[in-house]
Design a protein around this nucleic acid. Structure first.
Length: 580
RNA sequence: UACCCGGUGGUGUAAUUGGCAACACUACGGAUUUUGGUUCCGUUAUUCCAGGUUCAAGUCCUGGCCGGGUAACCA
């Protein structure tokens, strides 16, 4: 069990926990919780929080609860509860029997509210929402006390009882904490703790018409669950005094709230509101569109839970508001799949090759290694014949320097097969476009090396025309074309930065026969191209559809892109380098 | 405008809590390679600024600058 030899380098939350464990603050216990509101789909930012909370529990032999913060029935729904549970499970975390809902505690929360009233720390306010806002004041304007602030405990108790019993209309009254209308912290200016909402709750139905507010409910739920470290994002920092206030006034078990910076990623958006608008405006096909940063989207795209967890581990946890480059996510995926994915040959943009000196009816089976990173993955047979398809981009009539692939008169190696030489090209009579290559092979090079030891720099992939299987391939790119989609010109919104090429569908691809019944759960590497998986929804035997999860690193593409502006002066404006 | 929180290479996170600024990713250069993949090697910082305390400051103090957050009967 010596996986980590060097100093583990604790993040600041771990530092706090270890300190607490040393001082015995929570008797060495670690109890966390992941508290989503069931009003939307989880995204990669939530994954950071999930990994943090469950990860901490795991690391310190504690427990992490899954608790739905369902205190606002207007926005919440079981649909979201189910998808969130599914996502957390998919990521690989287990809350065992500890699935909770804030609504499980409604009765207890109500009793806490009653106690607060009895202690003279809460009152029923009959101001309208607008009046409350007006009374609250502003940043440099003190608030004014509500005229209802001094109601007696008896009166408040009676009113609150009648609120619960449904005697009043929505908005007629609220229960407010009695704190300090002059506080520089707006959250302490007599915050609302209960409001009347005549809405059916997805779990409690119509048994309640008053619902607790987040600030009141959250800390008390944490307390009831004996949470030790209540981890939330930075924007709740100003809520901590209020979190502490309720716990102190009620003299109950007191967890510690700790805030961390939420995740930001380049080339995407992670706000629930923006994600919803992308779905509603039809910019994506749905929450599970493979370009979406949602967990369902990443999952459909083909990201593995292992890669996402590794990513969350690598980005660390801090209080500094940072933006992580998406390449980190891609890199985590590449690292995972390089190790695990079987290699296959697939041609995305086919160009026909006829090997003139190869016997007309001959078919050979050639051995191909499944995964050079994993000997246990074994090998398979690839059918080879006179007519093949190769990648269009692997042939150029007039190749630039350092192009190692096929060109008239040049020789390349066909992976696992033979050396192939291009003798001539066949053109479409109308367009002049190259539609076929006439080639010859060297029978002495079977397996890919020559007895005379001559060097062939390039190796290209191929499929046998008679044996390959047609497929559709969906190439995904960043949803946005700018690193920070929120940066827009006056009068525009973030959708102005959408990448028009974020999805390219190729309908005429050819893949090797072993893929004809591929399991969508299996990720494969199309050699020299990228990592792919069959789309779990649209793909089926006979009509294969593959999603590109991520490309392979492509130094040639990078090379030709960087050299282009210098060498050829007819490049179109060049890729603008990212501004600093 | 008030309050709160932050500021370490292109990016993110460290720094034994006052002791020679480290690790990872990217970028660039090179080696290996039957994937232009993988792997390996190399290159990039007066720690936001200015003062102060100290033998010694990224760490402590003072002032400034910059960034983020906050005024829902949302979470």
């Amino acid at each position: 069990m010596t996986d980590e030899t060097a100093t583990p380098a604790l993040n600041f939350v771990q530092t706090i926990i270890e300190h607490d464990n040393q001082t015995g603050k929570f008797e060495g216990r670690v109890q966390t919780r992941f508290p989503p509101e069931p009003n939307g789909y989880l995204h990669i930012g939530h994954a950071k929080s999930i990994c943090l909370n469950f990860g901490l529990a795991e690391r310190y032999n504690g427990q992490c609860n899954l608790r739905f913060d369902d205190t606002n029935p207007e926005k919440e729904d079981v649909e979201y509860v189910d998808s969130i549970k599914d996502d957390v499970r998919w990521l690989g975390f287990d809350w065992q029997e500890r699935l909770f809902f804030a609504s499980d505690y409604y009765e207890q929360l109500h009793d806490f509210a009653v106690q607060l009233i009895e202690k003279g720390k809460a009152y029923v306010c009959s101001l309208s929402a607008e009046e409350v806002r007006e009374h609250r004041g502003g940043w440099n304007k003190e608030g004014r006390n509500s005229p209802y602030r001094e109601r007696t405990a008896e009166e408040n108790l009676d009113l609150f009882r009648r609120m619960r019993e449904g005697e009043f209309d929505e908005g007629a009254h609220t229960l407010r904490a009695k704190i300090d209308m002059a506080s520089p912290n707006m959250n302490l200016r007599d915050p609302t703790i209960y409001r009347i909402r005549r809405v059916t709750h997805h779990r409690t139905g119509d048994t309640w018409c008053i619902y607790p507010m987040y600030d009141f409910a959250h800390g008390l739920c944490d307390s009831l669950e004996k949470v030790t470290h209540s981890i939330c994002t930075l924007e709740f920092e100003h809520h901590r005094p209020l979190y502490d206030w309720f716990l102190d006034q009620l003299e109950v078990y007191h967890p510690q709230q700790i805030e961390f910076a939420r995740l930001n990623l380049t080339y995407t958006v992670l706000s629930k509101r923006k994600l919803i608008s992308l779905v509603q405006a039809g910019h994506v096909s749905g929450w599970d569109d493979p370009r979406m940063p949602t967990l369902v989207g990443l999952r459909r795209r083909g990201y593995t839970p292992e890669a996402i967890r590794d990513f969350c581990e690598r980005i660390g946890v801090a209080k500094f508001n940072s933006t992580i480059e998406t390449t980190w996510l891609e890199d985590a995926l590449r690292q995972d799949l390089n190790r695990r994915a079987c290699r296959v040959l697939a041609v995305l943009r086919p160009l026909k090759v006829v090997i003139e000196n190869y016997p007309e009816d001959q078919v050979e089976q050639l051995e191909a290694i499944n995964n050079p990173e994993d000997a246990a993955a074994g090998s398979r047979q690839l059918p080879f014949s006179r007519e093949l398809y190769i990648e269009r981009s692997d042939f150029m009539e007039d190749p630039p320097k350092k192009y190692f692939r096929l060109a008239p008169g040049r020789e390349v190696r066909l992976r696992y097969a033979y050396y192939l030489k291009c003798e001539s090209v066949v053109r479409d009579e109308q367009s002049g476009e190259v539609i076929e290559l006439r080639c010859t092979y060297d029978p002495a090079t079977r397996g890919g090396s020559s007895p005379d030891g001559r060097k062939v720099k390039g190796t290209i992939h191929w499929v046998s025309a008679a044996h390959c299987v047609p497929a559709e391939v969906r190439l995904y790119d960043h949803l946005f074309q700018t690193p920070d989609p929120n940066k827009v010109e006056e009068g525009q919104d973030f959708t102005a930065n959408l990448n028009p090429h974020s999805l390219e569908v190729l309908t005429d691809c050819r893949v090797e026969p072993s893929l004809s019944d591929v399991d969508p759960e299996q990720r494969v590497q199309f050699e020299r191209t990228g990592y792919f998986r069959a789309d779990p929804i649209d793909s089926r035997p006979g009509k294969l559809v593959f999603n590109r999860i991520v490309t392979l690193r492509d130094t040639w593409a990078k090379l030709s892109r960087n050299k282009a502006p210098k060498a050829g002066n007819k490049s179109k404006g060049g890729q603008k380098k990212q501004a600093k």
